[in-house]
């Protein structure tokens, strides 16, 4: 055996010694890793199950929110239709009242009735019962004037129209809510997509997936107070007018 061959054998023996030493040191670590894997394996399985449930349920939740949006939109539409009809009816009645059609009619009938009562009193020669009837009629007229149903009618109708407009304006909340719901839907859909990508990359044993999780979160209307927001807008508009923006 040549010296070189002997050196080679000795070198390999030394390498083997190093490998054995290394093995002695790494074996306990590998044991620990193995033990850890055994311990966390059920947790990973649980996590996988949770993620799978989430992936199925999140689109369902988004779908339910979408149905809420549609139902709210339809309800607002129906309310607006009803309010439109009310406004048209109120317009017609108001036109009648303003032109005096209702009050004139009532006035004519009242005058006719008063004339009949007066004639009855005179023809009866001031009969006590007829006089009592005339007094009752006069009291009735006075109470009518005091309650003023016709005098107030125009104002009441205008108040009702104004209330209808206020209800319509309040329906803006539907659009604001829709945008908030839209933002929530976008967020949960982005989370579902993120979870889907994680499961594809982490749990699947097939082709490795690229783990690129980009969650484009939608813009949500600000939740700060309405008055503060309006002040801020006005302040910025003032700055823009002054050329300070």
């Amino acid at each position: 055996m040549k010296q070189q061959d002997l050196d080679n054998i000795l070198q390999k023996a030394a390498d083997l010694q190093v490998f054995c030493d290394y093995g002695q040191r790494t074996l306990p670590i590998l044991d620990e890793i193995s033990s850890l894997m055994r311990e966390i394996s059920p947790a990973i399985e649980d996590l996988k199950a949770v993620v799978e449930v989430a992936i199925v349920n999140i689109p369902r939740a988004a779908n339910q929110l979408d149905r809420v949006k549609q139902a709210t939109s339809q309800a607002s539409h129906d309310i607006l239709n009803t309010l439109d009809r009310m406004v048209v009816t109120l317009d017609e009645v108001l036109t009648g009242v303003s032109s005096g059609m209702i009050t004139k009619e009532l006035d004519t009938q009242t005058k006719k009735m008063s004339a009949v009562v007066k004639m009855l009193v005179e023809k009866s020669g001031w009969d006590a019962d007829i006089v009592q009837l005339a007094e009752a009629w006069e009291s009735h007229l006075q109470s009518l004037k005091m309650s003023g149903p016709t005098n107030n009618l125009e104002r009441l109708l205008k108040d009702l129209q104004s209330d209808c407009t206020e209800i319509m304006m309040a329906l803006q909340v539907e659009d604001i809510t829709q945008q908030h719901i839209g933002a929530v839907m976008g967020t949960i859909e982005a989370v579902a997509e993120g979870l889907r990508k994680i499961t594809m990359g982490f749990f699947d044993t097939g082709e490795p997936q690229e783990l690129s999780i980009d969650l484009p979160l939608p813009v949500s209307p600000e939740m700060v107070g309405e008055q503060e927001r309006k002040k801020m807008v006005e302040s910025l508009l003032d700055k823009a007018r002054a050329g300070e923006l």
Binding site: I176, P221, R229, M232, V233, L236
Partner: peptide, 27 residues
């Protein structure tokens, strides 16, 4: 619009909008 952040208003003004209202508004 419902968008009412300072950044939104500035962006709209830079696009040369004449004025800006944040919903809800009154007549």
């Amino acid at each position: 619009t419902t968008r009412g952040t300072e950044h939104d208003v500035i962006e709209a003004l830079q696009a040369k909008v004449n004025s800006y209202i944040v919903k809800p508004f009154t007549p």
